[in-house]
Design a protein around this nucleic acid. Structure first.
Lengths: 231, 231
DNA sequence: AATATAAGGTGTATTTTCTACACTAAGTAG
DNA sequence: CTACTTAGTGTAGAAAATACACCTTATATT
């Protein structure tokens, strides 16, 4: 690096793949763009990083501006930097994913005007996306699919109290295959990160299932230690 | 994103954590900086991305300029974007790691003049590094330590022909623990990605060990399929 | 030639984890 | 009280992980 940094017109952005689970479907949050380029196209929520904010801060801010949500577990997963990925110049984008608990689909109100709309879209029925956002989504989806095989991150997507069947459905949707009920339960309960509640499902027209909660404390203990290789 | 991209003075860089294995030690490649800031400090090899090159291309180019090596398996692992990580302006850096086979430590000749020197440093004895490079190294090291537990990437670091003991030592150095010889061999041979050669070690003053090669074809088959969760 | 040295190379029993698989129990709706 | 729907449970076999110790082979030394 030279004593004076050579510069060219360039800028960073953040794009977010925000997963939600609703009515048995895995969804992501899309916005309908209100400005060129790709006006009227669907796109991942994303925006430019400001001069005086870190990437992580920008990711939080953008998610907040789009959803009103804070303190969401977000993770950077890849940076996309092809020369021509943005038609108006050199924009390198850092992609984050987040998993959100949907408490109802009402509350999506973009604060900014560059989006007309923010909508949850089932991942099996996505429209064509602006820029290279389809690629970014694919990679983000791959990321959570891999991650969930060794770390039970899925609970971020569920309501606070959930049944084992709901949890299993979520796994099945993410992994795109069906799982054995007994083995699944055994495995999940063996992790020791589920707290059985003294409460049952309500409002169902069949036998109500027991409700569980995730025990974040135990979860953190279990999964922040390094993976081992054996002796 | 507005119709015209707002810009501020900013630039991207690549930093590389390049692992090598030599004389039983895990090492990384450092350069001695020849320019401000951090003149005379040790740093990870890294440089600015050019206007018309992708991140991956920049990573390859920079590694080539520093080592003369091409076609090295490189992987992007994290992007560092704290506001003040570079004293001269806003520089977001995309970090890559690579694992290199050292055929002898001679051939390190920086092509550029911004480095005085390029040297292999044992990771247990690293100097203070420029910028946030210590943090970048730590994260890169963590990455390969995690990765090696589920994917035998270590062979990139070994000479083409190697003994099982050499392979085990490498694992032990990366994981920082000792492994059981019999179990290690069983596991490695079970992967089915080692080709036993009709050849033995030479020049050792004890019983010579059999030499093995990695079978890249089988390796690719085995580890490019998705991880599974069971039925 | 004999011996010392240093690493190479091998098997088995135990435990743990993974997998496959099917029926009864409980609650609701009519 | 019956039908329906989902909840909830156990076991046996296979596969993978772990713990553990001795003989073999090549070289170097006397």
């Amino acid at each position: 690096m030279e004593t004076i940094l050579p510069k060219f017109d360039s800028v960073f952005s953040i794009d977010c793949v925000i997963f939600g689970f609703d009515e048995g479907e895995l969804k992501i949050l899309l916005i309908e763009r209100n400005v060129e380029p790709f006006k009227d196209w669907w796109a991942l929520p994303g925006y430019l990083v400001e001069e005086n904010e870190s990437l992580d801060h920008a990711a939080e801010r953008i998610l907040y501006e789009l959803t009103g949500l804070r303190d969401i577990f977000m993770d950077q997963f890849y940076t996309f930097g092809d020369v021509d990925r943005h038609p108006q110049g050199r924009v390198v984008t850092v992609a984050y994913y987040a998993m959100l608990r949907l408490n109802g689909p009402k509350e999506l109100k973009p604060v900014t005007t560059y989006a007309k709309n923010a909508v949850w879209y089932p991942i099996n029925d996505l429209p064509k996306l602006a820029f290279d956002h389809s690629k970014i989504f694919e990679r983000g989806f791959l990321k959570i699919r891999n991650k969930i095989t060794y770390q039970p991150i899925a609970f971020e997507l569920l309501p606070e109290k959930f049944t084992l069947t709901q949890l299993q459905h979520l796994y099945e949707v993410i992994l795109n295959k069906s799982l054995d009920k007994r083995n699944f339960r055994k495995k999940m309960l063996n992790y020791g990160i589920l707290k059985e509640l003294d409460e049952k499902q309500k409002g169902v027209s069949y036998r109500a299932a027991k409700l569980y909660k995730f025990d974040r404390r135990k979860y953190a203990k279990l999964f922040q230690k390094e993976l081992t290789f054996g002796k």
